[in-house]
Design a protein around this nucleic acid. Structure first.
Length: 482
RNA sequence: GCCGGUGUAGCUUAGUGGUUGAAGUGGGGCUCUCAUAAGGCCUAGAUGAAGGUUCGAUUCCUUCCACCGGCACCA
Protein backbone atom coordinates (compact mmCIF):
# COMPACT_ATOMS: atom_id res chain seq x y z
CA UNK A 1 0.00 0.00 0.00
CA UNK A 2 1.39 3.35 -0.94
CA UNK A 3 1.01 5.48 2.14
CA UNK A 4 2.43 8.57 0.57
CA UNK A 5 3.92 10.96 3.00
CA UNK A 6 3.20 13.91 0.81
CA UNK A 7 1.66 17.23 1.58
CA UNK A 8 -1.03 19.13 -0.22
CA UNK A 9 -1.84 22.76 0.48
CA UNK A 10 -5.03 24.06 -0.98
CA UNK A 11 -6.65 27.41 -0.37
CA UNK A 12 -9.70 29.31 -1.43
CA UNK A 13 -9.59 33.05 -1.69
CA UNK A 14 -10.53 34.70 1.55
CA UNK A 15 -13.87 36.42 1.17
CA UNK A 16 -14.58 40.07 1.66
CA UNK A 17 -17.37 40.23 4.21
CA UNK A 18 -18.97 43.49 3.21
CA UNK A 19 -22.04 41.44 2.31
CA UNK A 20 -23.39 38.09 3.39
CA UNK A 21 -22.10 35.09 1.45
CA UNK A 22 -23.80 34.16 -1.81
CA UNK A 23 -23.88 31.16 -4.11
CA UNK A 24 -20.63 32.09 -5.85
CA UNK A 25 -18.78 31.88 -2.57
CA UNK A 26 -20.21 28.39 -2.15
CA UNK A 27 -18.98 27.12 -5.50
CA UNK A 28 -15.39 27.97 -4.67
CA UNK A 29 -15.47 26.40 -1.23
CA UNK A 30 -17.10 23.25 -2.54
CA UNK A 31 -14.53 22.85 -5.31
CA UNK A 32 -11.74 23.24 -2.80
CA UNK A 33 -13.40 20.86 -0.39
CA UNK A 34 -13.72 18.18 -3.04
CA UNK A 35 -10.04 18.41 -3.88
CA UNK A 36 -9.04 18.45 -0.24
CA UNK A 37 -11.09 15.34 0.52
CA UNK A 38 -9.78 13.58 -2.56
CA UNK A 39 -6.19 14.21 -1.59
CA UNK A 40 -6.78 13.12 1.98
CA UNK A 41 -8.21 9.86 0.71
CA UNK A 42 -5.09 9.41 -1.36
CA UNK A 43 -3.03 9.65 1.77
CA UNK A 44 -1.81 13.20 1.42
CA UNK A 45 -1.30 15.36 4.43
CA UNK A 46 -3.67 18.16 3.50
CA UNK A 47 -3.90 21.71 4.66
CA UNK A 48 -7.07 23.38 3.41
CA UNK A 49 -7.56 27.01 4.28
CA UNK A 50 -10.27 29.57 3.81
CA UNK A 51 -11.26 32.70 5.68
CA UNK A 52 -12.02 36.38 5.51
CA UNK A 53 -10.30 39.51 4.31
CA UNK A 54 -11.58 41.99 6.84
CA UNK A 55 -9.71 45.22 6.31
CA UNK A 56 -10.13 48.03 3.84
CA UNK A 57 -12.11 51.10 3.06
CA UNK A 58 -15.27 49.33 2.04
CA UNK A 59 -15.60 47.53 5.36
CA UNK A 60 -14.74 50.72 7.18
CA UNK A 61 -17.59 52.50 5.40
CA UNK A 62 -20.04 49.64 5.63
CA UNK A 63 -19.50 49.43 9.37
CA UNK A 64 -19.92 53.14 9.75
CA UNK A 65 -23.19 52.99 7.91
CA UNK A 66 -24.39 50.20 10.18
CA UNK A 67 -23.40 52.25 13.20
CA UNK A 68 -20.80 49.73 14.30
CA UNK A 69 -17.10 49.75 14.67
CA UNK A 70 -15.38 47.75 11.97
CA UNK A 71 -14.32 44.92 14.25
CA UNK A 72 -17.85 44.44 15.53
CA UNK A 73 -19.08 44.48 12.00
CA UNK A 74 -16.72 41.82 10.70
CA UNK A 75 -17.19 39.69 13.80
CA UNK A 76 -20.85 39.60 13.01
CA UNK A 77 -20.35 38.91 9.32
CA UNK A 78 -17.83 36.19 10.02
CA UNK A 79 -20.53 34.15 11.73
CA UNK A 80 -22.52 33.88 8.49
CA UNK A 81 -19.52 32.64 6.57
CA UNK A 82 -18.39 30.18 9.20
CA UNK A 83 -21.87 28.85 9.61
CA UNK A 84 -22.38 28.44 5.88
CA UNK A 85 -19.19 26.43 5.51
CA UNK A 86 -20.29 24.26 8.35
CA UNK A 87 -23.65 23.42 6.85
CA UNK A 88 -22.06 22.88 3.45
CA UNK A 89 -19.78 20.32 5.06
CA UNK A 90 -16.60 22.15 4.08
CA UNK A 91 -13.62 20.41 5.63
CA UNK A 92 -11.28 23.36 5.93
CA UNK A 93 -8.44 23.02 8.40
CA UNK A 94 -8.27 26.71 9.12
CA UNK A 95 -10.48 29.76 8.92
CA UNK A 96 -8.15 32.68 8.79
CA UNK A 97 -9.30 36.21 9.54
CA UNK A 98 -7.01 39.06 8.62
CA UNK A 99 -7.85 40.93 11.80
CA UNK A 100 -6.28 38.19 13.91
CA UNK A 101 -3.18 39.20 15.82
CA UNK A 102 -1.13 36.36 14.43
CA UNK A 103 -1.90 37.49 10.90
CA UNK A 104 -0.98 41.08 11.57
CA UNK A 105 2.37 39.91 12.92
CA UNK A 106 3.06 37.81 9.86
CA UNK A 107 2.13 40.65 7.53
CA UNK A 108 4.49 43.02 9.27
CA UNK A 109 7.25 40.45 9.19
CA UNK A 110 6.79 39.92 5.48
CA UNK A 111 6.69 43.64 4.82
CA UNK A 112 9.89 44.09 6.75
CA UNK A 113 11.57 41.38 4.78
CA UNK A 114 10.64 42.80 1.41
CA UNK A 115 11.63 46.21 2.64
CA UNK A 116 15.04 44.90 3.57
CA UNK A 117 15.40 43.38 0.14
CA UNK A 118 15.12 46.89 -1.23
CA UNK A 119 11.91 46.16 -3.09
CA UNK A 120 9.91 48.84 -1.33
CA UNK A 121 10.57 52.52 -1.79
CA UNK A 122 8.86 55.79 -0.97
CA UNK A 123 7.54 57.83 -3.85
CA UNK A 124 4.63 59.90 -4.98
CA UNK A 125 1.31 58.53 -6.09
CA UNK A 126 -0.45 60.65 -8.65
CA UNK A 127 -4.13 60.16 -9.06
CA UNK A 128 -7.64 61.46 -9.13
CA UNK A 129 -8.77 62.04 -5.60
CA UNK A 130 -12.28 62.59 -4.29
CA UNK A 131 -12.11 64.55 -1.08
CA UNK A 132 -15.46 63.34 0.19
CA UNK A 133 -14.59 59.71 -0.41
CA UNK A 134 -11.08 60.23 0.84
CA UNK A 135 -9.90 57.93 -1.87
CA UNK A 136 -8.38 57.74 -5.31
CA UNK A 137 -10.23 56.76 -8.43
CA UNK A 138 -9.07 55.36 -11.71
CA UNK A 139 -10.41 57.15 -14.77
CA UNK A 140 -12.42 54.09 -15.73
CA UNK A 141 -14.25 54.07 -12.43
CA UNK A 142 -15.56 57.57 -12.83
CA UNK A 143 -19.05 58.23 -14.07
CA UNK A 144 -19.00 61.06 -16.58
CA UNK A 145 -15.68 62.05 -15.13
CA UNK A 146 -17.16 62.32 -11.67
CA UNK A 147 -16.96 60.36 -8.47
CA UNK A 148 -19.67 57.70 -8.59
CA UNK A 149 -20.69 58.29 -4.98
CA UNK A 150 -20.61 62.06 -4.60
CA UNK A 151 -20.93 63.05 -8.26
CA UNK A 152 -18.16 65.56 -7.91
CA UNK A 153 -15.15 65.96 -10.11
CA UNK A 154 -12.12 64.50 -8.38
CA UNK A 155 -8.95 66.52 -8.00
CA UNK A 156 -5.71 65.49 -9.52
CA UNK A 157 -3.30 65.29 -6.62
CA UNK A 158 -0.06 63.73 -5.53
CA UNK A 159 0.43 61.89 -2.32
CA UNK A 160 3.35 60.22 -0.63
CA UNK A 161 3.19 56.50 -0.88
CA UNK A 162 5.25 53.39 -0.59
CA UNK A 163 5.74 51.37 -3.73
CA UNK A 164 6.58 47.77 -4.36
CA UNK A 165 9.02 47.11 -7.19
CA UNK A 166 6.78 44.89 -9.21
CA UNK A 167 8.57 45.83 -12.36
CA UNK A 168 11.77 44.25 -11.10
CA UNK A 169 10.22 40.79 -11.10
CA UNK A 170 8.30 41.02 -14.32
CA UNK A 171 10.74 39.06 -16.39
CA UNK A 172 11.16 36.22 -13.94
CA UNK A 173 7.43 36.03 -13.44
CA UNK A 174 6.70 35.96 -17.15
CA UNK A 175 9.21 33.20 -17.62
CA UNK A 176 7.66 31.17 -14.83
CA UNK A 177 4.20 31.44 -16.32
CA UNK A 178 5.46 30.51 -19.75
CA UNK A 179 7.31 27.50 -18.43
CA UNK A 180 4.47 26.27 -16.27
CA UNK A 181 1.43 25.46 -18.26
CA UNK A 182 -0.57 24.60 -15.18
CA UNK A 183 0.24 27.72 -13.23
CA UNK A 184 -3.03 29.29 -14.29
CA UNK A 185 -5.95 27.04 -15.23
CA UNK A 186 -7.79 27.36 -17.59
CA UNK A 187 -5.37 28.29 -20.34
CA UNK A 188 -7.51 31.14 -21.61
CA UNK A 189 -6.97 32.93 -18.31
CA UNK A 190 -3.28 32.22 -18.51
CA UNK A 191 -3.18 33.87 -21.92
CA UNK A 192 -4.88 36.96 -20.59
CA UNK A 193 -2.22 37.40 -17.97
CA UNK A 194 0.63 36.69 -20.37
CA UNK A 195 -0.81 39.28 -22.71
CA UNK A 196 -0.81 41.87 -20.01
CA UNK A 197 2.68 40.93 -18.96
CA UNK A 198 3.93 41.65 -22.46
CA UNK A 199 3.66 45.30 -21.55
CA UNK A 200 5.73 46.98 -18.92
CA UNK A 201 4.46 46.71 -15.35
CA UNK A 202 4.17 49.71 -13.11
CA UNK A 203 5.29 49.53 -9.56
CA UNK A 204 2.46 49.04 -7.14
CA UNK A 205 1.42 51.57 -4.56
CA UNK A 206 1.05 49.50 -1.41
CA UNK A 207 0.33 52.08 1.25
CA UNK A 208 -2.80 54.07 2.03
CA UNK A 209 -2.69 57.25 4.00
CA UNK A 210 -6.42 57.67 4.44
CA UNK A 211 -7.56 54.13 5.09
CA UNK A 212 -7.64 53.70 8.83
CA UNK A 213 -8.99 50.15 8.90
CA UNK A 214 -5.86 48.28 7.97
CA UNK A 215 -2.49 47.09 9.13
CA UNK A 216 -0.02 49.91 9.87
CA UNK A 217 3.30 49.77 8.06
CA UNK A 218 5.89 48.70 10.59
CA UNK A 219 8.31 51.24 9.19
CA UNK A 220 5.90 54.16 9.03
CA UNK A 221 2.78 54.03 11.15
CA UNK A 222 1.12 56.94 9.37
CA UNK A 223 0.28 54.54 6.57
CA UNK A 224 -1.77 51.43 6.39
CA UNK A 225 -0.98 48.61 4.06
CA UNK A 226 -2.93 48.18 0.83
CA UNK A 227 -5.51 45.52 1.69
CA UNK A 228 -4.53 43.20 -1.13
CA UNK A 229 -1.04 42.75 0.24
CA UNK A 230 -2.54 42.15 3.64
CA UNK A 231 -5.02 39.66 2.20
CA UNK A 232 -2.61 37.65 0.08
CA UNK A 233 -0.34 37.05 3.01
CA UNK A 234 -3.12 35.05 4.66
CA UNK A 235 -1.72 32.09 2.75
CA UNK A 236 1.38 32.40 4.92
CA UNK A 237 -0.41 32.96 8.18
CA UNK A 238 -2.55 29.89 7.84
CA UNK A 239 0.53 27.68 7.76
CA UNK A 240 2.40 29.55 10.45
CA UNK A 241 5.02 31.44 8.46
CA UNK A 242 7.99 31.12 8.75
CA UNK A 243 8.04 28.12 11.03
CA UNK A 244 7.94 24.37 10.71
CA UNK A 245 4.49 24.05 9.28
CA UNK A 246 5.29 26.64 6.65
CA UNK A 247 8.40 24.80 5.61
CA UNK A 248 6.38 21.66 5.24
CA UNK A 249 3.44 23.04 3.28
CA UNK A 250 4.91 25.78 1.12
CA UNK A 251 4.44 26.18 -1.82
CA UNK A 252 0.70 26.18 -2.34
CA UNK A 253 -0.48 23.32 -4.50
CA UNK A 254 -3.74 24.92 -5.57
CA UNK A 255 -5.18 28.36 -5.05
CA UNK A 256 -8.82 28.33 -6.00
CA UNK A 257 -10.04 31.78 -6.92
CA UNK A 258 -12.62 33.65 -8.99
CA UNK A 259 -11.90 35.14 -12.36
CA UNK A 260 -11.97 38.67 -10.94
CA UNK A 261 -8.80 38.28 -8.90
CA UNK A 262 -6.40 36.47 -11.20
CA UNK A 263 -4.15 39.47 -11.53
CA UNK A 264 -3.70 39.75 -7.80
CA UNK A 265 -2.89 36.10 -7.36
CA UNK A 266 -0.64 35.63 -10.32
CA UNK A 267 1.14 38.94 -10.77
CA UNK A 268 1.05 40.73 -7.43
CA UNK A 269 1.35 37.63 -5.28
CA UNK A 270 3.83 36.09 -7.67
CA UNK A 271 6.05 39.17 -7.56
CA UNK A 272 5.93 39.32 -3.78
CA UNK A 273 7.01 35.69 -3.59
CA UNK A 274 9.82 36.26 -6.05
CA UNK A 275 10.98 39.14 -3.95
CA UNK A 276 10.98 36.88 -0.90
CA UNK A 277 12.87 34.24 -2.85
CA UNK A 278 10.13 31.66 -2.37
CA UNK A 279 8.69 29.21 -4.87
CA UNK A 280 5.46 30.22 -6.56
CA UNK A 281 2.16 28.37 -6.25
CA UNK A 282 1.90 25.32 -8.45
CA UNK A 283 -1.58 26.01 -9.70
CA UNK A 284 -4.09 28.80 -9.63
CA UNK A 285 -7.45 27.33 -10.51
CA UNK A 286 -9.87 29.95 -11.74
CA UNK A 287 -13.63 29.53 -11.63
CA UNK A 288 -16.33 31.68 -13.17
CA UNK A 289 -19.39 33.35 -11.78
CA UNK A 290 -22.86 32.02 -11.19
CA UNK A 291 -25.73 33.80 -12.81
CA UNK A 292 -29.34 33.43 -11.83
CA UNK A 293 -31.69 32.85 -14.72
CA UNK A 294 -28.99 34.03 -17.10
CA UNK A 295 -28.46 37.32 -15.37
CA UNK A 296 -26.13 38.63 -12.77
CA UNK A 297 -27.60 38.26 -9.32
CA UNK A 298 -28.68 41.57 -7.96
CA UNK A 299 -31.07 42.83 -5.37
CA UNK A 300 -32.82 45.10 -7.80
CA UNK A 301 -33.57 42.21 -10.14
CA UNK A 302 -34.72 40.14 -7.20
CA UNK A 303 -32.94 37.07 -8.47
CA UNK A 304 -30.49 36.59 -5.64
CA UNK A 305 -30.26 33.00 -4.46
CA UNK A 306 -29.75 32.67 -0.74
CA UNK A 307 -27.53 29.65 -0.10
CA UNK A 308 -28.91 29.19 3.40
CA UNK A 309 -32.42 28.86 2.07
CA UNK A 310 -31.32 26.57 -0.69
CA UNK A 311 -29.56 24.17 1.66
CA UNK A 312 -32.43 24.34 4.11
CA UNK A 313 -34.85 23.35 1.42
CA UNK A 314 -32.94 20.64 -0.42
CA UNK A 315 -30.06 19.59 1.80
CA UNK A 316 -26.31 19.94 1.62
CA UNK A 317 -25.36 17.23 -0.82
CA UNK A 318 -27.87 18.19 -3.51
CA UNK A 319 -26.49 21.73 -3.49
CA UNK A 320 -22.94 20.44 -3.68
CA UNK A 321 -23.97 18.10 -6.45
CA UNK A 322 -25.64 20.73 -8.57
CA UNK A 323 -22.80 23.22 -8.38
CA UNK A 324 -20.24 20.57 -9.22
CA UNK A 325 -22.16 18.76 -11.92
CA UNK A 326 -24.16 21.36 -13.78
CA UNK A 327 -21.63 24.14 -13.64
CA UNK A 328 -18.35 23.93 -15.48
CA UNK A 329 -15.45 24.30 -13.04
CA UNK A 330 -13.83 27.11 -14.98
CA UNK A 331 -16.67 28.81 -16.81
CA UNK A 332 -19.66 30.85 -15.78
CA UNK A 333 -22.71 28.84 -14.91
CA UNK A 334 -26.37 29.45 -14.43
CA UNK A 335 -28.62 28.62 -11.52
CA UNK A 336 -32.39 28.30 -11.65
CA UNK A 337 -34.66 26.33 -9.38
CA UNK A 338 -35.98 24.53 -12.40
CA UNK A 339 -32.55 23.32 -13.47
CA UNK A 340 -31.76 22.42 -9.93
CA UNK A 341 -34.86 20.30 -9.44
CA UNK A 342 -34.39 18.60 -12.78
CA UNK A 343 -30.88 17.58 -11.87
CA UNK A 344 -32.00 16.50 -8.46
CA UNK A 345 -34.79 14.28 -9.72
CA UNK A 346 -32.91 12.81 -12.65
CA UNK A 347 -29.52 12.16 -11.09
CA UNK A 348 -30.01 11.96 -7.35
CA UNK A 349 -33.53 10.57 -6.90
CA UNK A 350 -34.07 8.39 -9.99
CA UNK A 351 -30.39 7.68 -10.55
CA UNK A 352 -28.34 7.17 -7.44
CA UNK A 353 -31.10 7.00 -4.82
CA UNK A 354 -33.25 4.56 -6.72
CA UNK A 355 -30.35 2.26 -7.51
CA UNK A 356 -29.33 2.03 -3.88
CA UNK A 357 -32.91 1.36 -2.86
CA UNK A 358 -33.57 -1.37 -5.38
CA UNK A 359 -30.34 -3.22 -4.72
CA UNK A 360 -30.75 -3.07 -0.98
CA UNK A 361 -34.33 -4.24 -1.08
CA UNK A 362 -33.30 -7.31 -3.03
CA UNK A 363 -30.38 -7.93 -0.72
CA UNK A 364 -32.63 -7.55 2.29
CA UNK A 365 -35.14 -10.03 0.97
CA UNK A 366 -32.58 -12.64 0.16
CA UNK A 367 -30.58 -12.05 3.27
CA UNK A 368 -32.87 -13.96 5.57
CA UNK A 369 -32.47 -17.14 3.57
CA UNK A 370 -29.01 -17.01 2.18
CA UNK A 371 -25.98 -15.03 3.08
CA UNK A 372 -25.13 -12.05 1.00
CA UNK A 373 -21.61 -10.90 1.38
CA UNK A 374 -20.85 -7.35 2.12
CA UNK A 375 -19.30 -5.81 -0.87
CA UNK A 376 -17.02 -8.45 -2.23
CA UNK A 377 -16.91 -9.43 -5.83
CA UNK A 378 -18.16 -12.99 -6.02
CA UNK A 379 -17.34 -14.70 -9.21
CA UNK A 380 -14.21 -14.61 -11.21
CA UNK A 381 -16.68 -14.91 -14.01
CA UNK A 382 -17.86 -11.39 -13.32
CA UNK A 383 -15.08 -9.72 -15.18
CA UNK A 384 -17.68 -7.63 -16.95
CA UNK A 385 -18.42 -5.88 -13.67
CA UNK A 386 -14.81 -5.74 -12.70
CA UNK A 387 -13.87 -4.22 -16.02
CA UNK A 388 -16.53 -1.56 -15.72
CA UNK A 389 -15.36 -0.58 -12.28
CA UNK A 390 -11.72 -0.39 -13.33
CA UNK A 391 -12.64 1.74 -16.29
CA UNK A 392 -14.63 4.03 -14.05
CA UNK A 393 -11.76 4.57 -11.65
CA UNK A 394 -9.41 5.32 -14.49
CA UNK A 395 -11.64 7.96 -16.04
CA UNK A 396 -12.43 9.29 -12.60
CA UNK A 397 -8.78 9.87 -11.80
CA UNK A 398 -8.04 11.32 -15.19
CA UNK A 399 -10.73 13.94 -15.03
CA UNK A 400 -10.13 14.65 -11.35
CA UNK A 401 -6.46 15.44 -11.90
CA UNK A 402 -7.50 17.94 -14.55
CA UNK A 403 -10.02 19.53 -12.17
CA UNK A 404 -12.95 18.64 -14.44
CA UNK A 405 -15.26 17.95 -11.55
CA UNK A 406 -18.37 17.91 -13.71
CA UNK A 407 -16.91 15.19 -15.89
CA UNK A 408 -15.65 13.24 -12.90
CA UNK A 409 -19.18 13.07 -11.58
CA UNK A 410 -20.25 12.00 -15.03
CA UNK A 411 -18.02 8.93 -14.76
CA UNK A 412 -19.74 7.89 -11.54
CA UNK A 413 -23.17 8.21 -13.09
CA UNK A 414 -22.04 6.10 -15.97
CA UNK A 415 -21.36 3.31 -13.52
CA UNK A 416 -24.79 3.83 -12.00
CA UNK A 417 -26.28 3.39 -15.45
CA UNK A 418 -24.24 0.25 -15.93
CA UNK A 419 -25.67 -1.20 -12.70
CA UNK A 420 -29.23 -0.49 -13.78
CA UNK A 421 -28.64 -2.30 -17.05
CA UNK A 422 -26.94 -5.16 -15.27
CA UNK A 423 -30.00 -5.58 -13.06
CA UNK A 424 -32.32 -5.48 -16.04
CA UNK A 425 -30.29 -8.11 -17.78
CA UNK A 426 -29.84 -10.48 -14.84
CA UNK A 427 -33.25 -9.98 -13.24
CA UNK A 428 -32.02 -10.89 -9.77
CA UNK A 429 -35.52 -10.61 -8.30
CA UNK A 430 -36.26 -13.95 -9.95
CA UNK A 431 -34.98 -17.05 -8.25
CA UNK A 432 -32.00 -18.46 -10.08
CA UNK A 433 -28.63 -19.94 -9.49
CA UNK A 434 -27.00 -16.67 -10.27
CA UNK A 435 -29.29 -14.60 -8.12
CA UNK A 436 -27.06 -14.48 -5.10
CA UNK A 437 -23.90 -13.73 -6.95
CA UNK A 438 -25.52 -10.99 -8.98
CA UNK A 439 -26.77 -9.29 -5.86
CA UNK A 440 -23.35 -9.55 -4.33
CA UNK A 441 -21.86 -7.98 -7.42
CA UNK A 442 -24.30 -5.14 -7.12
CA UNK A 443 -23.50 -4.63 -3.46
CA UNK A 444 -19.87 -4.47 -4.44
CA UNK A 445 -20.68 -1.84 -7.05
CA UNK A 446 -22.60 0.24 -4.54
CA UNK A 447 -19.62 0.14 -2.27
CA UNK A 448 -17.42 1.37 -5.10
CA UNK A 449 -19.91 4.07 -5.97
CA UNK A 450 -19.89 5.26 -2.38
CA UNK A 451 -16.10 5.38 -2.46
CA UNK A 452 -16.15 7.36 -5.67
CA UNK A 453 -18.68 9.75 -4.19
CA UNK A 454 -16.81 10.41 -0.98
CA UNK A 455 -15.06 13.64 -1.98
CA UNK A 456 -18.17 15.05 -3.64
CA UNK A 457 -21.07 13.98 -1.46
CA UNK A 458 -19.49 12.90 1.81
CA UNK A 459 -22.75 12.64 3.70
CA UNK A 460 -24.36 10.49 1.04
CA UNK A 461 -21.33 8.22 0.75
CA UNK A 462 -21.47 7.66 4.48
CA UNK A 463 -25.17 6.80 4.31
CA UNK A 464 -24.54 4.26 1.59
CA UNK A 465 -21.76 2.60 3.57
CA UNK A 466 -24.11 2.34 6.54
CA UNK A 467 -26.95 0.93 4.53
CA UNK A 468 -24.63 -1.63 3.00
CA UNK A 469 -23.72 -2.82 6.45
CA UNK A 470 -27.25 -3.01 7.78
CA UNK A 471 -28.78 -4.11 4.46
CA UNK A 472 -31.62 -1.73 5.18
CA UNK A 473 -32.47 0.80 2.53
CA UNK A 474 -33.84 4.21 3.32
CA UNK A 475 -34.49 6.74 0.56
CA UNK A 476 -31.43 8.91 0.07
CA UNK A 477 -33.09 11.56 -2.04
CA UNK A 478 -36.87 11.65 -2.00
CA UNK A 479 -38.20 12.60 -5.37
CA UNK A 480 -39.38 16.18 -5.66
CA UNK A 481 -42.95 16.71 -6.74
CA UNK A 482 -43.69 18.83 -9.76
C1' G B 1 -11.43 52.17 -28.17
C1' C B 2 -7.49 48.20 -27.87
C1' C B 3 -6.84 42.93 -27.20
C1' G B 4 -8.58 37.95 -26.55
C1' G B 5 -12.03 33.93 -26.35
C1' U B 6 -16.36 31.19 -27.43
C1' G B 7 -20.45 29.58 -30.70
C1' U B 8 -21.84 21.28 -31.08
C1' A B 9 -29.30 18.61 -30.29
C1' G B 10 -34.54 22.43 -25.81
C1' C B 11 -30.60 22.18 -21.58
C1' U B 12 -25.50 20.58 -19.48
C1' U B 13 -21.39 18.92 -21.84
C1' A B 14 -17.64 15.30 -24.87
C1' G B 15 -14.92 14.75 -29.28
C1' U B 16 -12.33 14.34 -34.27
C1' G B 17 -8.54 16.77 -40.94
C1' G B 18 -11.62 11.39 -43.41
C1' U B 19 -16.51 5.64 -43.16
C1' U B 20 -23.67 7.20 -40.82
C1' G B 21 -20.51 13.55 -34.83
C1' A B 22 -20.71 11.04 -28.57
C1' A B 23 -23.23 11.15 -23.77
C1' G B 24 -26.64 12.62 -19.98
C1' U B 25 -31.09 15.15 -19.31
C1' G B 26 -35.71 16.72 -21.51
C1' G B 27 -39.63 15.14 -25.81
C1' G B 28 -42.28 10.81 -28.37
C1' G B 29 -43.20 5.37 -28.45
C1' C B 30 -42.67 0.38 -26.37
C1' U B 31 -41.61 -2.56 -22.05
C1' C B 32 -39.88 -5.15 -17.24
C1' U B 33 -41.76 -5.00 -12.01
C1' C B 34 -36.63 -5.64 -7.54
C1' A B 35 -36.93 -0.09 -6.81
C1' U B 36 -38.20 6.65 -5.06
C1' A B 37 -44.64 6.33 -11.24
C1' A B 38 -38.03 4.70 -10.59
C1' G B 39 -35.39 0.98 -14.44
C1' G B 40 -34.66 -0.98 -19.56
C1' C B 41 -35.24 -0.66 -24.94
C1' C B 42 -36.37 2.15 -29.38
C1' U B 43 -36.92 6.99 -31.62
C1' A B 44 -36.76 12.25 -33.21
C1' G B 45 -33.17 16.15 -32.49
C1' A B 46 -27.07 19.72 -33.41
C1' U B 47 -21.74 21.35 -35.56
C1' G B 48 -24.16 30.26 -35.72
C1' A B 49 -23.67 32.25 -41.36
C1' A B 50 -20.98 32.75 -45.88
C1' G B 51 -16.61 31.87 -48.38
C1' G B 52 -11.61 29.61 -48.87
C1' U B 53 -7.44 25.75 -48.34
C1' U B 54 -7.98 20.37 -49.18
C1' C B 55 -9.22 14.41 -52.63
C1' G B 56 -12.05 15.38 -47.94
C1' A B 57 -13.54 20.16 -42.51
C1' U B 58 -17.43 20.37 -37.32
C1' U B 59 -11.98 20.44 -36.80
C1' C B 60 -7.34 24.82 -40.40
C1' C B 61 -7.82 30.08 -42.70
C1' U B 62 -10.83 34.67 -43.92
C1' U B 63 -15.12 37.59 -43.36
C1' C B 64 -19.72 38.33 -41.02
C1' C B 65 -23.24 37.64 -37.03
C1' A B 66 -24.07 36.54 -31.82
C1' C B 67 -22.42 36.11 -27.00
C1' C B 68 -18.61 36.50 -23.36
C1' G B 69 -14.12 38.06 -21.21
C1' G B 70 -9.45 41.13 -20.14
C1' C B 71 -7.50 46.27 -20.14
C1' A B 72 -3.89 46.52 -12.54
C1' C B 73 -3.37 49.75 -6.93
C1' C B 74 -12.41 49.00 -5.14
C1' A B 75 -12.45 44.28 -3.05
Amino acid sequence: MKRINKKFFISTAIDYPSEKPHLGHCLEKIQADVLARYKRLQGFDVHFSTGLDEHGLKIQRRAQKAGKNPQEFVDEMSRYFKNLWKILNISNDDFIRTTEKKHIKVVQKVFQKIYEKGDIYKGKYKGLYCVDCESFYLPKDLVDGKCPIHHKSPESIQEESYFFRMNKHQEALTRYIKENENFIIPGSRRNEILKRLSESLQDLSISRKTVKWGIPLPTDKKFSLFVWIDALINYFTTIDYPNKKFKKFWPVDVHIIGKDIIWHHSVIWGSLLLSLGLPLPKTILVHGFITSGGQKMSKSLGNVIDPFELIEKYGTDPVRYFLLREISPTEDGDFTYEKFEKRYNADLASGLGNLVARVLTMAEKINSKRKTQSAKLQLKAQNLVKKEIDKTWENYKNTFERFKFNETLGTIWKLIGFCDRYIEQERPWDKSERQLSVINDLLFCLNEIAKLLQPFLPETAEKIFKQLKSKKGKPLFPRLGD
